[in-house]
Lab assay of single mutants.
Amino acid sequence: RSLKHLCRLKIRKCMGRLHLRCPVFMSFLPLPNRLKAYVLY
């Protein structure tokens, strides 16, 4: 697996499933929209 994929998995694990599904939580993250979309992919 690529480093990019492993990073996405780690971020998702740290955030938890409930936060990933909450659009309000995701909108408050201080991340560029492209990065938010990548994490959610």
Rank of each mutant, 00 (worst) to 15 (best):
M26K: 09
C14P: 05
L20C: 05
R8G: 10
A37E: 10
M26V: 08
H5N: 08
K10D: 04
S27L: 00
Y38V: 02
L40T: 05
R17C: 13
L9I: 11
M15R: 02
R34M: 01
F28A: 06
A37R: 10
H5C: 09
V39I: 10
F28I: 10
S2K: 09
L35M: 04
L20E: 14
N33Q: 12
M15W: 12
V24Y: 07
M15L: 13
K36Q: 04
K10Y: 13
H19Q: 10
L29M: 02
C7S: 04
N33T: 10
A37T: 09
L3T: 01
R34S: 06
L6M: 10
G16E: 15
R12Q: 07
H19N: 08
K36R: 05
L18I: 14
Y38D: 01
L3M: 07
M15E: 01
S2C: 02
L3E: 07
P32F: 15
L9P: 00
V24Q: 14
K10R: 03
K13G: 11
L29K: 05
S27C: 02
H19K: 12
R21T: 07
R12V: 09
G16I: 12
L35V: 08
R21W: 14
K4S: 07
P23C: 14
P32L: 15
L40W: 09
R17M: 11
F25A: 06
P23H: 05
C7H: 01
L20S: 08
R21E: 02
G16L: 12
M15V: 07
F28L: 12
C7V: 14
R17E: 12
C7N: 03
K13P: 03
S27W: 07
Y41C: 12
R17T: 09
F28Q: 11
L40M: 07
A37M: 06
K4T: 10
L35H: 00
P32E: 00
L9D: 12
Y38T: 03
L40K: 02
H5R: 05
I11P: 01
L20D: 14
M26S: 10
L20M: 08
S2W: 08
L29R: 04
Y38W: 14
R1T: 04
R8M: 13
H19T: 06
R21Y: 08
P23K: 15
C22V: 11
L29W: 06
H5L: 06
G16D: 12
L9H: 08
F28G: 08
G16W: 09
R34A: 05
L20A: 11
L35T: 00
Y41T: 13
F25L: 13
K36H: 01
G16N: 13
K4Q: 03
L18M: 08
K4E: 02
R34E: 09
P30V: 10
R21L: 13
M15D: 00
K13H: 08
C14T: 12
K36W: 09
L6H: 11
L31T: 03
S27D: 09
R8A: 12
V24D: 15
N33C: 07
F25Q: 07
M26R: 09
K36L: 05
R21D: 07
I11H: 01
Y38C: 02
P30A: 15
L6Q: 14
R8P: 11
M15A: 06
L3N: 02
Y41R: 15
L20R: 04
N33A: 13
R21S: 07
C7T: 06
S27V: 01
F25G: 09
H5D: 05
S2A: 04
H19L: 11
M26E: 13
R21G: 09
R12I: 12
R1F: 14
R8K: 12
K36I: 05
K13S: 09
V39D: 00
L31R: 04
L40P: 03
R34F: 07
S27A: 09
S27M: 00
L9V: 06
H19Y: 04
L31N: 09
I11N: 01
C7P: 02
K36V: 09
H5V: 00
V24A: 14
R21H: 05
R34T: 06
G16P: 08
S27E: 10
R12K: 12
R17S: 13
H5Q: 05
A37H: 07
H5P: 02
K13Q: 12
K4Y: 14
M26C: 10
L18K: 01
F28T: 05
A37C: 08
F25E: 08
R8E: 08
K13A: 10
R17N: 04
M26I: 09
L31K: 02
K36F: 10
L6R: 13
P23Q: 15
M15T: 03
L6Y: 11
R12L: 09
Y38P: 01
R12H: 01
C7G: 05
C22M: 13
L9G: 08
C7K: 02
I11Q: 00
L31Y: 01
P23D: 14
L3Q: 01
V24K: 15
K36G: 02
A37K: 11
C7Q: 02
K36C: 03
S27N: 10
Y38A: 04
P30L: 13
H19W: 09
R12W: 06
R21I: 13
H19D: 05
Y38I: 05
C7A: 11
R12G: 05
C22Q: 02
R8S: 07
M15S: 02
F28Y: 10
H19M: 06
Y41A: 15
V24P: 12
Y41W: 11
R12A: 05
R17G: 14
H19V: 08
R8L: 11
R1S: 03
L40N: 01
P30R: 15
C22W: 13
L20I: 04
R21V: 10
R17Y: 15
P32R: 03
R12S: 06
M15P: 01
L35G: 00
R34C: 06
L6S: 13
L6P: 02
P23N: 09
L35F: 12
L18F: 10
P32Q: 02
L3D: 04
S2E: 09
K10V: 15
L18V: 03
S2V: 04
N33V: 04
L20F: 09
L18Q: 01
H19C: 06
H5G: 04
A37Q: 11
L29N: 03
H5T: 07
L20V: 06
L3C: 02
F25P: 11
S27T: 05
L6F: 09
R17L: 13
Y41M: 14
C14R: 05
P30M: 14
K36E: 01
I11S: 01
N33P: 10
K4M: 10
R12E: 10
L9W: 06
L29T: 03
L31P: 03
L35S: 01
P32T: 04
I11K: 00
A37P: 00
Y41S: 15
S27Y: 00
C7F: 11
L35D: 00
L9C: 12
N33L: 03
R34H: 03
P23W: 14
S2P: 02
L29P: 04
I11M: 11
S2D: 14
M26Q: 07
F28C: 06
I11T: 01
P23T: 14
L31I: 10
G16M: 04
R17P: 09
R17V: 13
L40R: 11
V39E: 00
P30E: 15
L35P: 00
R1C: 07
K36M: 03
C22N: 01
H5A: 07
R17D: 09
P30Q: 15
M15C: 04
F28S: 09
A37W: 02
F28R: 12
L31M: 05
K13Y: 06
L9S: 10
N33Y: 02
L31A: 05
R17Q: 12
L35K: 00
H5W: 05
P23Y: 14
L18R: 00
V24N: 14
N33G: 13
R8C: 10
P30K: 15
P32V: 14
F25H: 03
H19G: 10
R21Q: 01
L40Y: 02
K10S: 04
P30S: 15
